[in-house]
Nucleic acid binder design. Structure first.
Lengths: 168, 168
DNA sequence: ATCGAATGAGACACAAGAGTCTCAGGTAAG
DNA sequence: CTTACCTGAGACTCTTGTGTCTCATTCGAT
């Protein structure tokens, strides 16, 4: 886990989520390194965005882990989920915006696994009677990530600073 | 309003919402015309995406018009809104995905006007006691468009065919 | 059948970005 | 101090997409 690569990936994430067509040049300058070293760290643009996506996915998964979705009251779990995941909203925005990433099986599977975990939480809440049952849990999960990406966009455009939760 | 330009714009909309970096070549072939005529219709790529965005915005505005948001029961109005606008969800997905469009004042203003109309509906519902007041109406509007774009993405990726409403 | 306008196909130059390479300068370890 | 390694800067090639042009063909109207 070289911290250097990760720090470069984080700034790349920031640049690319604002401008998906940003050139390697701009990414390198934003990261404070030269284009040459950027190519030394990552063999090409594809590898860069791929690893950036993987990092974003790892961060989101870690956020889900920290929320302990399968424990305690479902309502409280959803609240924990929101609090844990909203700080990472920009990652969600990047992932949904960079559609090409879902051509990759690894990332696609990871995303579906996340989706399944959130859907399981909603399903648990529905079974326990805490949530409404009009909508399938899978839709609720989908909608949750849509809203999360929306928060990410909103933060990027500067019309949101300290976003908070309140769900359902 | 020459229908030919519009039909080309519609297919361009379809291609670009799936792949924002699609080349003029692909767009032309998807529209069944040659690259030359595409350039005869639209002076350049910028003009094409700009007009496509304007068309998408016109369609969404028309959908809002048909929903008569300021009349009748707020709950029924939201339901009408959803039914009118979900068929145009792909346009919303395109607009939110093509972030560069919002550098244009015309499109930006039109979007904000739409946002304001929806926010006004939610505010009206809140004032009449039909909707909850925990969330600002502006947030509800924002979230509504986020979900709409999400539906658009979902349809494009084929995991949704006859999407229906059910809101709140 | 003829004329005219629009279209498609292809060639062309131009620009931008990606990827590679070399070389000079700086830094840390010995 | 010296050496080995890493980095930045710049040049270079290659690819890709854009925009423009020309010319032959086709389609429709007269």
């Amino acid at each position: 886990m070289a911290t250097d690569r990760d720090s470069v990936l984080l700034t790349a994430l920031g640049v690319l989520s604002r401008q998906p067509t940003a050139a390697m040049d701009e990414i390198a300058r934003a990261a404070g390194i030269s284009r040459a070293t950027l190519h030394r760290l990552f063999p090409g643009r594809d590898a860069l965005v791929h690893e950036a996506g993987a990092l974003a996915m790892r961060r989101m998964s870690a956020a889900l882990d920290s929320a302990a979705l399968d424990q305690g009251d479902p309502v409280a779990a959803v609240r924990r989920l929101a609090e844990a995941v909203i700080p990472e909203a920009n990652f969600a925005a990047f992932l949904t915006g960079e559609g090409r990433l879902f051509e990759d099986d690894t990332i696609n599977d990871a995303w579906e696994a996340m989706d399944a975990r959130v859907a399981a939480l909603f399903l648990r809440g529905q079974n326990s009677g805490a949530f409404r049952v009009e909508l399938p849990a899978a839709w609720l999960s989908e909608a949750f990530f849509d809203l999360l990406a929306g928060v990410g966009w909103a933060v990027q455009e500067g019309r949101l600073a300290p976003a908070t939760a309140t769900t359902r």
